[in-house]
């Protein structure tokens, strides 16, 4: 297992002084080469889970084991580019070892090559998100963590980026955790989809998808989506 999650609970301090539970019992693992997607209602704790998995928050009950040798490529729910460095420098700073050819290739895949000299404040939200996606791949990760990777993209661009992620994941045999409101993106990319309940979140259903990513036709995807919606 690359990432092993066995959470028994996570709460945040509540405004009234008590504590408000966000995550319930959640257990699953991610094997090398496996993409897990999490779908669930807004505010159920998906981003919280990603922060825990990335080791950014140690304050929870249970156990999370992340292979210490694994490199993580993360894209937070908000693009989180360093605003004082150009978009291109943001890629460079995160991935100092990447070659120019590798970065050019990623820029072409996510269609961001024309904006390398812009400061993040001058990027549209969709562009900034594509930069944060490119950055996650630029570090040659073993494990991807993408939080709502295709939010604020129009449907054509969402499709293009989704395909780009699928190609990269297949070519590099990446493992990953993908969080998404959008069940379609989850179904296009994942080997297994976990459906979360409302807060405090726990897994209420899971759906394995055996069909190889690039052979999933639109009709197959609609069918799997219907199955998942029936589960949830």
């Amino acid at each position: 297992m690359l990432l092993e999650i066995a959470i028994t609970g996570k709460s945040y301090p509540a405004p009234n002084g008590g504590s408000a539970p966000v995550l319930g019992k959640i257990a699953f693992g991610i094997r090398p080469g496996e993409i897990a997607a999490i779908v669930g209602p807004s505010g159920c704790g998906k981003s919280t889970l990603m922060r825990l998995a990335a080791g950014l928050d140690q304050d929870f009950d249970g156990r999370i084991a992340l292979d210490p040798a694994a490199r993580t490529g993360i894209a937070f729910q908000e693009p989180r580019l360093l605003p004082w460095r150009s978009a291109g420098q943001n890629l460079r700073i995160a991935a100092p070892a990447a070659t120019d050819a590798e970065l050019d290739d990623l820029c072409a895949r996510f269609d961001i090559g024309d904006h390398l000299n812009h400061f993040p404040a001058a990027l549209s939200l969709g562009l900034a998100r594509r930069f944060s996606l490119a950055r996650a791949f630029a570090v040659k990760p073993d494990l991807l963590m993408l939080d709502e990777p295709f939010a604020s993209l129009d449907s054509a661009m969402r499709r293009r980026c989704c395909d780009a992620v699928a190609d990269l994941v297949d070519a590099r045999r990446l493992a990953g955790l993908i969080i998404s409101h959008d069940i379609e993106a989850a179904v296009r990319l994942a080997d297994v989809v976990y459906v979360f309940s409302a807060r405090p979140a726990c897994i209420i259903a899971q759906q394995e998808i055996a069909m190889p990513r690039r052979s999933r036709t639109d009709s197959a995807i609609r069918e799997i989506m219907a199955q998942i919606e029936a589960l949830g």
Binding site: A54, L56, R71, I74, R80, L82, A94
Partner: peptide, 23 residues
């Protein structure tokens, strides 16, 4: 947020100072 970014991306100390803290 930027500190978290630097941690997950395992930025070396010099890069952190230069690109995250100093600005």
């Amino acid at each position: 947020h930027y500190d978290e970014l630097a941690r997950v991306y395992r930025m070396p100390l010099t890069a952190r100072l230069r690109h995250v803290l100093a600005p």
